[in-house]
Amino acid sequence: MFFNVKDIEQFQSQKQFIDTAIVPLLSLEFADDRSRQSSSAAEFLMSLTAFIEQQFKGRLLVTPPFSYTPALKDAIRPEAIKDELQSAGFKHIFFMTCDHHWTTIEGERDVIWMPAIPLESMDKAVKQRILEDQLKQVIPTFTSAWTSV
């Protein structure tokens, strides 16, 4: 599910089935030497989360990305977002990011860091295969959370 009216209406009527939220944390950098890499990482992260949504549409909600520039980085508090999603009824909340910043924070166990793979130079079939491979990396994280309850 995405955060749009149609999906949210379905979410509200099927709350017992949709218990997982995926929150992309997206770093935007506009400096000349960083913007290309930053946009490539953004493209990868959005493609991957959209692909995860397609595979697990009926069980999880992919929220719009929480985007931040280096100056705003400290204003994003994953634990606060997590609390609000939990009070909305989500049992499992995962943050997905390509930004190393989040892996350095103590106690952030719900952040899944993925290496940004530059998709822009690939043709469609390769891109699809890369995304499938990356999906396989994250599936165990989801299934272990789902089976632990």
């Binding site: 379905q10 089935f17 949709i18 549409k57 009926g58």
Partner: peptide
């Protein structure tokens, strides 16, 4: 597409 809630 699963007929339940649309997963794959």
């Amino acid at each position: 597409v699963c007929k339940h809630l649309g997963c794959t």
